[in-house]
């Protein structure tokens, strides 16, 4: 008992002793943190002589957290999906960006420069989304193949609340011959098939484990997570469905009134620079939004690289997603997972 108190005091000191340096709190996706640390965080901390405090999670949960803390932002800078960013922008929670402070701004693809239309976000990566599948067990040629009997009981779909969910519905909708963004019939079709779907996954790591232990043999996936699969000894393949691939853009933003703008601009500028974008691309994590980035063919192959591919993606606009998401979730909850 006597020595527990000093131990406890010591622990308390240890946990509060890092106050000397400037601190930038960022909120990022949880995948590939080791690679980001090497390519982005460590070099930046060296340059700015500051500490990065990193929060990780999926886009929608981190968005909800930013909203919950709006009165007193905890996060200074965040990267999330373009539609979650739009939701925040519409609620007036984002800082308008002074793009003159981003030296690589003019090197970005046109679509990445002002994706929300009010200069509150800048695109830093594009990704394609398609279906990853076990080529030795099944063949996937269309998004509709996700509902076919050959994969019944061994297919997983992304949860509707995540980023990939609406994208999958969008492509399924087309594959089933429906037009526009009314997904009612497609959600009905998924509901009829619900027993054949192993789970509605919310994180790519979860899916990777399920596919590695052969629980799941086909599932829609964002290209940014492909490196989890391409390195496996199991024969995973990236589908090229008849309806094409879908995809999206992730953006960086600053919370309104975060009080740390200077450092946040510095970090964003560094992340968008040709040097860092190339390094991240070479690590096969994020595909570049900076046009000056050049990578060898084999690297380009595992990314979503080049104007031609990006333009071919069958995307759905952020506004369409935000305007309809609540209705989709409601239908989904009532029909699919009830």
């Amino acid at each position: 008992m006597k020595y527990l108190l000093p131990v406890c005091a010591g622990l308390m000191l240890a946990s509060t002793s890092t106050f000397a340096k400037d601190k930038l709190t960022i909120s990022v996706y949880s995948f590939a943190q080791d690679a980001y640390k090497e390519a982005l965080y460590d070099p930046f901390e060296e340059i700015c002589d500051c500490d990065l405090v990193i929060e990780t999670g999926n886009s929608v949960e981190r968005m909800a957290k930013i909203e919950a803390n709006a009165a007193k932002p905890v996060i200074d800078m965040a990267v999330i999906s373009s539609h979650d960013a739009l939701a925040l922008a519409r609620k007036g929670l984002l800082q308008t960006l002074d793009t003159s402070k981003l030296s690589s701004f003019n090197d970005l693809y046109e679509a990445a420069k002002n994706p929300l239309g009010d200069n509150t976000a800048v695109g830093y990566t594009f990704y394609a989304s398609s279906i990853v599948y076990r080529s030795d067990l099944v063949d996937i040629k269309s998004w509709a193949d996700l509902l076919k009997p050959e994969v019944a009981g061994r297919v997983s779909l992304p949860n509707i609340t995540g980023t990939q969910g609406p994208l999958t519905l969008h492509m399924l909708n087309q594959a089933l011959g429906h037009k526009g963004i009314d997904f009612t019939k497609t959600i009905d079709a998924v509901a009829e098939n619900a027993d054949n779907i192993v789970t509605f996954y919310s994180r790519s790591s979860e899916l990777a484990q399920l596919m590695q232990q052969e629980e799941v043999i086909a599932a829609p996936l964002g290209r940014f997570a492909w490196s989890r699969f391409s390195g496996s000894d199991l024969p995973f393949k990236w589908a090229e469905p008849a309806e094409g691939q879908t995809g999206g853009m992730n953006v960086m933003l600053m919370t309104k009134g975060n009080g740390n703008e200077e450092l946040a601009y510095k970090f964003m500028d560094y992340w968008l620079s040709t040097e860092v974008q190339t390094r991240i691309a070479m690590a096969k994590i994020d595909s570049p939004a900076n046009m000056k980035v050049e990578v060898p063919a084999d690297v380009a192959d595992s990314l979503t690289y080049g104007a031609e591919l990006i333009n071919s993606l069958n995307m759905i606009s952020p506004a369409d997603i935000i305007d309809n998401r609540d209705a989709w979730v409601e239908q989904w909850n009532n029909k699919v997972i009830k």
Partner: peptide
């Protein structure tokens, strides 16, 4: 259970974390 077999606790977490 994941999102297919929600219980009250996981539903609560989802309501707060996804939809505030």
């Amino acid at each position: 259970g994941g999102s297919k077999v929600l219980m009250l606790e996981t539903l609560l977490y989802q309501r707060v974390n996804v939809s505030n």
